[in-house]
Structures are given as C-alpha cells and as structure tokens.
Design a binder for these strands. Structure first.
Lengths: 226, 226
DNA sequence: ACGTATCTTGACCGTTGGGTCAAGATACCA
DNA sequence: TGGTATCTTGACCCAACGGTCAAGATACGT
C-alpha cells in the first residue's frame, strides 16, 4: 500500500506548543496497542487461539516479538482483550433490535446492523466463531449472563409479536439463530462466497443488494413480506 | 467407560474356520485407521489444523503417537483424509435437494438432510467451517469445481421456480447461503445453543421440533408457508 | 540539563511439536 | 515350522514456540 511522503505524526498529531514531529509516549502506547490488537484479531481469525504464534502476530504488526510481549504479557491476555473488543461491537449491533417496536422495522434494523458488522469486522466474527467452536472457554461467562439476558428479553418481544398477530407463530430461538447464522455467514465463510462468485469479493453495491435480500428472506420467514 | 469381559474380536469378528479371538491384520488396519480418523476429526474440530497436536489425537485415539504416524505419515495427510470424509457426506446431503421438482418438498428434504448432518457429524461440520475460515487452502479445488457446479445447477432450479411463480423472487445464492448457515449453525455453535438452553443439549425430540421450525422459516422466506 | 520512566530489541531459555528410528511383537503364508 | 510382512512403541532429534532479560534508546518532568 502506498504511503504519503509525510508520516502521521507530523500531520495528524500536531498540537499547539509541541514539536509536531516527535511522537508522545501516550500516543506510542495507544498506537502500538491498537496495532497489535488489530494484527492479533486477524491472525487469531485465521488460525485460532492455539494455532496462532505470537511471533506471527508480531510480524503482522511489524514489530519484534519482544515488543509485543512488552505491551501484552501473555498470549492469553492478548486474546482476551481481542475478544472483549469484539464483544463490545457485537452488543452495539444487538442494541439496534430495539430501534422500533414494530417487527418489520426492528428486524430490518437488526439484520442491517449484523450485516454491517460482518462487513466491517470479518476477522472479529471469525474469532468469535472459533472461540465458540472450541467450547467457548473464554466466553462462557458472557454467554451465560449478558447474552442470555439479552436473548430472553428479545424472545419475549418476539412472542409478543406472535401473540398480537403481527408475525407468524415462529419459534423465537430458531428465528434469532437464523439471523445470527445467516448474517455471520457473510463474514465467516467469505472465502467460500468469493470462490462461488467467480473469485470476486462482493463490492459495496453487491453487499447492499445482498443485505436487502437477507432482509427480505428474514421478513418472509415470519410472514412479513408484502 | 466400562467394557464387557469379552472384547469385540472374539464376538463380532467370529468367522467360520478361523480362530475367533485372534484379530486379523486387515481388520487391525481398518479399525485403527477409523479410530484415528474419528479422533482426528474431533480434535481438529476443537483446535483447528494448526492448533492441533498429533500427540493429542493419539491420546484421544488411545494409541502411542508413533503408531499414529505409522498409519498416517504426516499431520497434513491425516487432515486431508478427514476433510475428504466430511466432503463425501456433505455431498450426500446435497443430493437430497433433487428428491423432488417442487420447491416445497425439495427444500424440506434438503433442510432435513442438512440438519441431520449437523446432528450426526457436528465435528465434521466444525472442521469444514474452520477450514474455510482459514482461507480454505485444502478445499479451494473442491469449492471452485464440484461445489460451484452443484451450486450453479441449483441456482438454475431456483430461478426456474421463481420464473414459474412457484416461489417469491428471491436471490438464489442468498437463499442457499441462508440454508447452509442456519443448518450448520446447529453444529458449529452447539456450545452457545446449549448455554442459551439452560445448559441442556437438545434431545432427539427437541431437535426434531427445531428442524421443523427451520423448515418453516425457510419455506416462509420464499413465500411457501401456507 | 539531568535523572527517571517508558519503550525497543537481539539474544537467550526451557518446553513442546512434528516426525524418525530401530528393535521387538504379532499375524501371515508356504 | 520358519521366514516374511505388518504392527507396536519408547527413545530420540531438531525446529519452533511462549516468554524472559538486560542493555540501549527515547521521551518526560523539573
């Protein structure tokens, strides 16, 4: 990737009364931690926790391995921080379920947010998937508490929609799992999708169309297609 | 696990004219290869290719590591054989798509077969998922040839259904991906599903009900719910 | 300007990994 | 019954791994 002749620190970091070219300690820490977390997410997504070498992450981040271990003592700690970041964004997407009381708009918003998440954070989605396939050793707490609470509340909402005759009488869990699975599929199985799409990744336009199709299928599944 | 006082070879393998208690060489090979493949599928499903140690597989199979390497020279060869087995079963499930020309029955049969696959071969499903998340280095050939051919043919069938007004005008790829994602979710994310189900795995009855729900959602998504 | 805290890194350490080997055990076949 | 092919296994090898360390470099506060 091409870089501009002047680097970040001399342009972006300029502040009044400070030399613009010298990077400040706090910024160094912040930048390096972010760099390492991004690299780690990518490599963990590719090879999983056990299959990832900290040296690989260091290479991906463009740092010596010893430097990585200066910022994150152990691989386990680094992995947990990566998971935490993903979890935060996952929950942010989840909150869109409540943008509206009407099933049509709520489902549309939620599917859109989940598709957006798959588009923006494909590596995060894969780390999440791998973690659960490994028995969710690090996520057990979250799954059993926060996620469960969230799911129970949404299940009640869906049941209400059914009771009020707003949607067909579907099993709420089955519906939620279908939405999760379908939207996450676009991140987790991206490689398969690309190959079946003649080697080309979906561009922005294609992705928007696909999002619309997923919304249509989900709405149809509960009897909401006009 | 408790064992019966008399072992398999003396009971099952009894054949006329041969000493029943002595295991024959061919049977040894067959049994050990099957044992190792099953163990490997399980461990690969848990930790992925890179994250799996051949020693772990050996322990899981109850054999010394050197013995495992006697039957499968390298980890890569063993992994490829595991993948091949999964692929065969995946294709077998795929063939059920063609049991009927009518969308309702075809989709019902296909979803049922895929759900059955998730139930019977959860480890296989996870190995598959991990392989694709790693960029499908070993599956690229298959994805680009056999699978692509299969998908193209099914896409044409779905388009025909749309043209004939038998189903709503949905994107065939989006529909297929939704079916794959949703059915495989029950294998790949089993742990999450268990936790959200109060720590209990779905029993046979629950699984059949869930299968019916998935069928209902899929049929609904294309406008086929009565 | 100088002492201190933070950051950087090549070299290193003990452990684990994939894979080999050679010697013994077991089944096979003539 | 004896020779051969297959099977079994503890011991071993070397590369790669997670993690440490100490010494130098860089920014900070006064």
């Amino acid at each position: 990737m091409p870089t501009t002749p002047c680097d970040r620190s001399s342009v972006v970091d300029a502040r009044a009364g400070e030399p613009a070219y010298r990077t400040r300690k706090k910024d160094i820490r912040e930048a390096n931690e972010a760099l390492i977390l991004a690299a780690a997410e990518k490599v963990f997504a590719m090879h999983g926790y056990q299959g990832t070498a900290t040296g690989q992450i260091a290479v991906e981040a463009g740092l010596p391995k010893a430097n990585l271990h200066y910022y994150f003592k152990t691989k386990a700690i680094l992995y947990r921080e990566v998971l935490q970041h993903i979890l935060d964004d996952w929950m942010k997407a989840a909150s869109t379920f409540d943008t509206c009381n009407e099933p049509r708009e709520a489902l549309r918003a939620y599917v859109t947010a989940k598709m957006e998440f798959s588009r923006q954070r494909p590596f995060g989605s894969r780390v999440w998937a791998r973690e659960i396939m490994s028995g969710a050793p690090m996520l057990e707490d979250f799954l059993g508490t926060s996620l469960k609470t969230w799911v129970n509340a949404r299940v009640r909402i869906i049941r209400r929609w059914v009771r009020e005759g707003k949607i067909e009488p579907v099993d709420p869990h089955a519906l939620l799992y279908m939405i999760w699975a379908t939207t996450q599929h676009y991140a987790d199985f991206e490689q398969q999708i690309i190959i079946l799409n003649n080697g080309k990744a979906l561009d922005d336009r294609g992705y928007r169309q696909r999002t619309r199709q997923v919304i249509r299928l989900v709405l149809g599944s509960v009897g909401l297609q006009s």
